[in-house]
């Protein structure tokens, strides 16, 4: 099982929408994943405990230290797009 973190500013709107999309995409790809969402302020420091982080492009640079620690961090332009999530999962090597 992989652990995925999703962050947006408030942790209740955009990230929740992303969570629903990511869960759908993982299920469709047969990937066993635990998806958590949180506000950016909390997620920023917790990121290193996850395998993969999805966030809005605006917040990407807040995860520079997680990236440096080897965590995959992906921007989601369209929080409703399963296709975009699947593409990231493939590029990161979580699904074939």
């Amino acid at each position: 099982m992989i652990k995925i973190l999703i962050c947006c500013a408030s942790g209740s709107g955009t990230s929740m929408l992303m969570k629903l999309t990511v869960e759908k995409a993982c299920k469709a790809s047969g990937l066993d994943a635990k998806v958590t969402h949180s506000p950016i302020a909390e997620g920023k420091s917790a990121a290193t405990q996850y395998d993969l982080v999805f966030t809005s492009p605006n917040f990407l640079n807040m995860f520079d230290s997680a990236k440096a620690a080897g965590i995959k961090v992906c921007p989601l332009k369209n929080p409703l797009s399963d296709a975009e999530v699947k593409q990231h999962l493939q590029e990161c090597g979580f699904v074939k």
């Binding site: 709107g13 950016i40 917040f59 369209n78």
Partner: peptide, 26 residues
């Protein structure tokens, strides 16, 4: 204020749909 601070992260479908919101229980 959130959009001022963080930029237009509330756009959920590029060019078409926005979802303005703040924190749950704000």
């Amino acid at each position: 204020q959130n959009v001022e601070t963080y930029g237009p992260y509330i756009i959920i479908d590029p060019g078409r749909v926005a979802m303005p919101h703040s924190t749950l229980g704000g």
